[in-house]
Write a protein that binds this DNA or RNA. Structure first.
Length: 806
RNA sequence: GGGAGAUUAGCGCAGUUGGUAGAGUACCUGCCUUACAAGCAGAGGGUCAUAGGUUCGAGUCCUAUAUCUCCCACCA
């Protein structure tokens, strides 16, 4: 029997333990039920979870619960992404070790060990938030299964020529000392200086002005460009200039329409490589390659006296010398957007290194990605346009080599003699080429090999989560029949990275989509325009504090605010609403169940009109709620059932309670009819509310309903309508009765009377009075009227005199 | 420069195919009503960003404009 106030802290903990102990959310591989598989995105373990993370996860969890309550067998894992640079940096920092000083296996072991603590903290927080994942299905992207899957994926692509190795300039982070992918870059506004230099023409006929922010690139200058339409400089094309301070270098003036006539002086120097445009020119005009900067961000030999200096120091020294030699004639401070590495915030350089790439950007492939995007069901639908825009803009293949130490190694050696690429045998995976060798000789006869020391980019592994989940590495048949998975959810920021790359991998390996549907959640905003992030998550939004203060049910309620995919402003408002609902569910259930204590559910022979009404009304709300869930609109679904629930409390309970309290006045039949309606409607509501608020609904279910329903958790029950005969106009008729009651309340409120004030009579005017007459007992009771007078005519309610006691 | 989204009550939002503007919250007026005062009943409050257009009729469709957010491009 429910008593007192609802204690969410104790209750939530109790049922979370119960769900784990009883394996309520466990996937059953032997089940006959239809399977519903979710490719939960494995979070990167670093820092602390905040309301932003849990919001996206909770929303997806509601869809998971909705599917489970349709009798499906859920495959709903919780993995962790911990194989790349972020984890390497984390381990180095926490354990005070340097990755490359240890054998890779040993470092991986230390990492896995450290990370397991973080995983546990994340897992605990997920459980505390009411997530219904099967924790036994987890994986780490650095564990053996993931490594094996990732390496198998690479081998498959390498054998088919889809993965290839090439020397080409790509973005390089000198701080992290690795190449990075284009999508790992972000723009940052930095202060800089435009240095105006005079380049002497080689024939001695004068100088030309060039403005540059990076004079340290002078030794790598390979050409000068002007715009072909620029009348000022047209005549210069084809002439040669000498590079200031590096007068031995002579470069040619070329023309290209990528040059902005009104930018700087309208003349640009092309260096290998100052930026993306330099790379394009280098390719297009077949220019020589001069590397002025090495992988640590120091000047190389070709910088002459500046060799060995860091770029920033070199810049200072070069500017001083330029001034002294009279080349520099002006300096203008500017702020400009610079591409920086998102992990460390340091500006990137372009370096040319031998790297592995995956083919992604030919016109035919792009067409394929668009076609696959069209086959995928997007929620919300407009997110697809972002994907399409991104695919259309793809112009580079996917670089997957990282010159780091920790990660999934490439299962590859190179023949020392002929350079031939030797791929590992699939049955030896996972393999670390640094600590093992090919078992066969190279076809050139040599048996000396150089192992690949690079590791794969994190995305190369996190893009095969469907294959990890469905055990592709060990059972191709199973994977083939279980991919596409049913659903994936993710934040909007990774449509272009994670999602596309996963689509690419599944296409290459299974020739199909990775998932049937993709849910893209919005962001939680700390303030207008400011996304909540780790450093912004102050204590007001700290997840553990929120859970302690409000409980998981209320937090989840808050997460179901707003149309799916939209950004939501974090505020206390929604939390207050959630708390109100929680409280109301508790009180209403406590009250209703107090009348069902000695009751055995049995459909009564005669069901009174208002009881039939509330049941039909529930069935209608049930249909509407489900339609919203089918449409992945958990917020509207929640609102729908919530609105019905509130109506049930304020109108139906007020009517039914008279019959429940006083069977001696209204009769046992009238009581039983109300009991049956209460039992079914309350249970039905709790089931639908369980999707949003799994704890309180379980508490009430376990307190009462479980002994009749015989299913061990409300979360394993099946959603259903209440079985009742169809009836014409029952909802309209019932609404009319509610309207009558409302009119009486309005009269009392306007006359500042208590709602229990007795009335001499109520006069009801309507064309059709039959249904209203059938409800006379209820109307009289709820409005405290002594008599009801009926008249035929246009609908009206005339309230008689109030009977005022002394 | 290209693209996407937003603009509706004091506030944060909903408004499916065009048909009299909606709930919540806040504010206001009442009510201790045999569950709940974190409750209940009731009232007020909006030139739907602006300007045009299509239509018998526009929050909804079209065209501009403004403001805000995000993505992409530019980065010499």
């Amino acid at each position: 029997m429910l008593e007192g106030k609802y204690n969410f802290l104790e209750t939530e903990k109790k049922w979370q333990k119960f769900w784990q102990d009883e394996g309520i959310y466990k996937f059953d591989p032997k089940s006959n039920k239809p399977m519903f598989s979710i490719d939960t995105p494995p979070p990167t373990v670093s820092g602390e979870l905040h309301i932003g993370h849990i919001s996206g996860f909770s929303q997806a969890d509601m869809i998971a619960r909705y599917n489970r309550m349709q009798g499906k067998n859920l495959f709903y894992p919780l993995g962790f992404d911990n194989n790349g640079l972020p984890t390497e940096l984390l381990v180095e920092d926490k354990k005070k070790i340097r990755a490359h000083t240890l054998p890779r296996e040993e470092f991986t072991k230390i990492a896995l060990d450290l990370v397991s603590g973080y995983n546990q903290a994340y897992r605990d927080m997920m459980v505390r938030s009411g997530m219904s994942c099967d924790l036994s299905l987890g994986y780490n992207t650095i564990d053996n299964r993931s490594q094996k899957t990732s390496q198998k994926s690479f081998l498959d692509l390498a054998r088919r020529g889809i993965a290839y190795r090439e020397d080409k300039p790509s973005p390089w982070c000198c701080k992290c000392r690795t190449s990075v992918a284009g999508f790992e870059l972000e723009d940052k506004d930095l202060d800089s200086v435009f240095n105006y230099l005079n380049f002497p023409l080689a024939d001695g006929s004068g100088t030309i002005p060039i403005a540059t922010t990076r004079p340290e690139f002078l030794p790598a200058c390979v050409a000068i460009f002007v715009n072909p339409d620029d009348d000022r400089y047209k005549s210069l094309v084809g002439k040669k200039v000498r590079v200031p301070l590096f007068e031995d270098i002579e470069v040619t003036i070329l023309s290209d329409d990528k040059v902005g006539i009104d930018k700087g002086t309208g003349i640009v120097m092309c260096c290998t490589f100052g930026d993306q445009t330099d790379v394009e020119w280098w390719k297009e005009y077949n220019l020589p390659l001069k590397q002025a900067i090495d992988d640590s961000g120091s000047m190389t030999e070709i910088a002459g006296k500046y060799a060995g200096l860091k770029t920033t120091d070199a810049r200072k020294a070069i500017i001083d010398d330029l001034k002294e030699k009279g080349y520099l004639y002006n300096q203008v401070p500017i702020t400009h957007a610079v591409k920086v590495h998102e992990r460390c915030g340091k500006p990137i350089e372009f370096l040319s290194k031998k790297q592995w790439f995956i083919k992604t950007s030919t016109p035919e492939l792009k067409e394929k990605w668009l076609e696959l995007g069209d086959q995928l069901v997007w929620h919300p639908a407009e997110m697809k346009t972002r994907y399409r825009a991104w695919v259309n803009n793809l112009n580079q293949d996917w670089s997957i080599s990282r010159q780091r130490y920790f990660g999934v190694p490439f299962p590859v050696w190179y023949c020392k003699n002929c350079g031939n690429v030797i791929l590992a045998d699939e049955k030896d995976l996972p393999i670390n080429p640094l600590s093992s060798s090919p078992k066969v000789k190279c076809k050139c006869g040599s048996s000396e090999f150089i192992p690949e020391s690079d590791v794969m980019d994190t995305w190369a592994t996190s893009s095969v989560t469907p294959q990890i989940n469905m055990n592709w590495a060990d059972d191709e048949e199973y994977a083939k029949t279980h991919i596409p998975m049913d659903m994936r959810f993710a934040g909007r920021d990774i449509i272009t990275t994670w999602c596309l790359r996963t689509i690419i991998k599944s296409y290459y390996h299974q020739n199909c989509l990775p998932w049937k549907s993709l849910l893209i959640n919005g962001w939680v905003m700390a303030d207008k325009g400011i996304k909540i992030s780790k450093h912004l998550a102050n204590s007001k939004m700290k997840l553990s504090d929120l859970l302690d203060t409000y409980g998981a049910d209320v937090i989840r309620y808050w997460c179901a605010i707003g149309a799916y995919g939209r950004d939501v402003l974090f505020s206390d408002e929604g939390l207050k609403d959630g708390y109100k609902l929680l409280n109301k569910i508790w009180n209403a259930s406590k009250f209703v169940l107090s009348f069902l204590q000695d009751y055995t559910p049995k459909k009564p022979k005669k069901i009174l009109p208002m009881d039939r009404y509330i049941i039909h009304k529930f069935n209608q709300a049930y249909d509407d709620t489900r339609a919203f869930y089918d449409d992945v609109e958990m917020s509207f679904a929640k609102n729908e059932i919530e609105r019905f629930f509130w109506n049930f409390c304020d109108n139906y309970i007020e009517i039914a309670k008279n019959r429940l309290y006083k069977p001696e006045v209204y009769g046992e039949d009238a009581k039983e009819s109300a009991q049956w309606a209460c039992y079914n409607v309350l249970l039905g509501m709790l089931k639908l509310l369980a999707i949003t608020m799994p704890h309180i609904t379980e508490e009430i279910y376990q307190d009462y309903f479980v002994k009749f329903e015989k299913v061990k958790s409300i979360h394993l029950t099946t959603l259903s309508k209440i079985n009742i005969e169809d009836e014409d106009k029952i909802i309209d008729n019932g609404d009319l009765v509610i309207d009558i009651v409302s009119k009486v309340r309005q009269f009392k409120s306007e006359n500042k009377l208590s709602l229990k004030t007795e009335l001499t009579n109520i006069e009801i005017v309507n064309d059709d009075l039959d249904f209203i007459k059938d409800c006379e007992m209820d109307i009289k009771a709820v409005s405290s009227a002594k008599e009801i007078i009926y008249k035929t005519g246009e609908f009206a309610v005339n309230v008689g005199k109030p009977i005022l006691s002394e």
